[in-house]
Design a protein around this nucleic acid. Sequence first.
DNA 1: TGTTGTGAAAACCTTCACAGCG
DNA 2: CGCTGTGAAGGTTTTCACAACA
Lengths: 227, 227
Amino acid sequence: MFAACLVKRLSLYRRVLGALASPEGWAGGLGSSDGEYVFSHDLASLAGVSAAQVRRDVMTIGYTGSPRRGYDVAGLIGRIGEFLDAPGGQSAVLVGLGHLGKAVLAYVGGRRTGLRIVAGFDVDPAKCGRVIHGCRCHGMEALAEVIAEHGANVGLVAVPGAEAQNVSIQLVRAGVRGLLNFAPVRLQVPEYVFVEDVDITVSLESVAFFARHDAVRRQAMIKEAVR
Amino acid sequence: MFAACLVKRLSLYRRVLGALASPEGWAGGLGSSDGEYVFSHDLASLAGVSAAQVRRDVMTIGYTGSPRRGYDVAGLIGRIGEFLDAPGGQSAVLVGLGHLGKAVLAYVGGRRTGLRIVAGFDVDPAKCGRVIHGCRCHGMEALAEVIAEHGANVGLVAVPGAEAQNVSIQLVRAGVRGLLNFAPVRLQVPEYVFVEDVDITVSLESVAFFARHDAVRRQAMIKEAVR
DNA sequence: TGTTGTGAAAACCTTCACAGCG
DNA sequence: CGCTGTGAAGGTTTTCACAACA
């Protein structure tokens, strides 16, 4: 089994490499990359990991660079795509078109990675029939039909916590096998369904903790330097 | 140093325990908890981790249960609070009041954990002076002043990727020591600043990958069962 | 009996360090 | 020379398994 964090790093590498490759996104600020080739330590610093980690990850997906020039940017993007993406593309649906749902559509809408959000759903009839950020919106009653029609196997849950469990059951019943859950609840689903939680409250409390903790560590370091 | 994932699990445990303790949030569905006491395996299943993990975490923060009854819910909530929360409370500010920013305010607004989002900021003058979800909104020019006034040391970055780096520098300069970053960019900040990335694109691609991958694994398991 | 608390083991992930190469 | 590829080492996190206990 491939670890979840490897997959996430690869996804991140690809985005960073894409910015390197496209001229407009890249003002030539960092390291020795010219947009054609990149060294492990440059990619590492852009992705916020160590160079050894990058080399190990590249090795894991079976790509090879050259000691002289580093990695071929386009080639590595391609290899990551082969590893990450479904050969024939993949479809996702989004349930919940509140602020969060719209924000997600705006984020993901512009991307080109073989993964598309093909439909949105909401209990609010006022949102049905509209097209938001290029995504057609339906009432909840159309869920199973639309999912089957598109063969979507990924679902994004952006509804209030009280409804999340119920929504996730409907999604799984309709054929979804991966859930990205924004609700502050752990979903109880069959073990063949993969769930990733984006838990803002938890993340925020964690940041708050380490904002203080790192301050403590800084003072400890200062003390140690004085001694 | 305490690991980031321990902190996140504790934050999650606290939320789950809070739901257990409050009668309205708890219909008595799971396990043997009566709302007063909880066993490690019940808490584990609600939090989606193993019972051994729960016991280890509880041990790490120096709390003790009883073999007969399990953990005292209120007591454990209290102990987690001592561990996670700043003694005098902690203040955070949010930059970027688009859909995502508003969604975050709605999520976090209702919570009571010694951590408050005390102010919001946006470049759009139309949003200045308003109060959204109980949070006063200002123009970017007031950033340093408002942060100093509240002694905020946590910042949430919910602006487009192109502005995130610039915003994070302003926040750090104003005294922020922890950043929760929603922009699809790795922030370059001094090492005494803690950064947590909530990277929706990366999370989504990861879910898509494992939605397929688990399907493969399921078939492999079926094959093995047949053999 | 069924639970907690915990040393020990296992599993996992990251880094080190250096051979090999252009 | 400085880079990649990688075996080996190191570190961290999770689980096992069982003593102690009510």
